[in-house]
Nucleic acid binder design. Sequence first.
DNA 1: CGTATATCAGGTGCACTGAGATTT
DNA 2: CAAATCTCAGTGGACCTGATATAC
Lengths: 132, 132
Amino acid sequence: LLTQTATHASRLVSEGFVASGARGYHYRMLAALEEFGPASQASLGRRTGVDRSDVVAAINELEEGGFVERDQDPADRRRNVVTITPAGVGQLRRLDALLAAVQDDLFAPLSAEERGELARLLRRVLDHHARR
Amino acid sequence: LLTQTATHASRLVSEGFVASGARGYHYRMLAALEEFGPASQASLGRRTGVDRSDVVAAINELEEGGFVERDQDPADRRRNVVTITPAGVGQLRRLDALLAAVQDDLFAPLSAEERGELARLLRRVLDHHARR
DNA sequence: CGTATATCAGGTGCACTGAGATTT
DNA sequence: CAAATCTCAGTGGACCTGATATAC
């Protein structure tokens, strides 16, 4: 049930994102950058659960679109400091609205209380495994 | 939350399945064959939500392992009738046990009532979209 | 020295598309 | 004829591993 529902969700999200030329990883990056501020690629990967290799590719594409900037960290020259641009914030807003619409579609048969309950249960499961 | 939890679940299941040389599609095929009896590949695909192309590959592999038989349907020569073998039933039992263990691990932080509630919510969402 | 970071090359499983051949 | 079935070839995104170079 879980994986089938998730497959459904992924397809809906992907379909919605194509119009904006974005993919799932892009959204995760932008959201993390806005929530936590500029960050190194390694910490971005840790926060979003995206592999370090894929962070490189996602940031490449976001940089190409002008949604983020990548600069060397003067304090630690191993690091790149990734910063979200105003254009990136705009893109994030568009994707946020898109995601909200997709969620409304996906969870249409559930009441607000039931959606909350579902979120609570999934959060518990995730937190439990994140702690290990 | 949904896709992250499902990713976690998929990884656990995959890890468990490697030992048996099986993959997710194999389990879905075997389970559907036991539940509904011999079936054509097209109906198998519809029942399990697996694409027709991937059904071909999965049945190829299951046939190689001796877990299913594939015969031409005399009543409709377009169809192959796929039948589960005793070895296939044995494999299904092993995978069932494995899945039960994985589920216990994945949903460890939830009580039996909560697991039921989670299943009920997901089932509602899936049924709603299957009907369209 | 070991550890961390960024990058690149590649592998695998999953979901899917398009096309062809055959049969109904 | 249209529609269904099986098969093959190939695409694309998600997830992951291993190796390398550089900096701490």
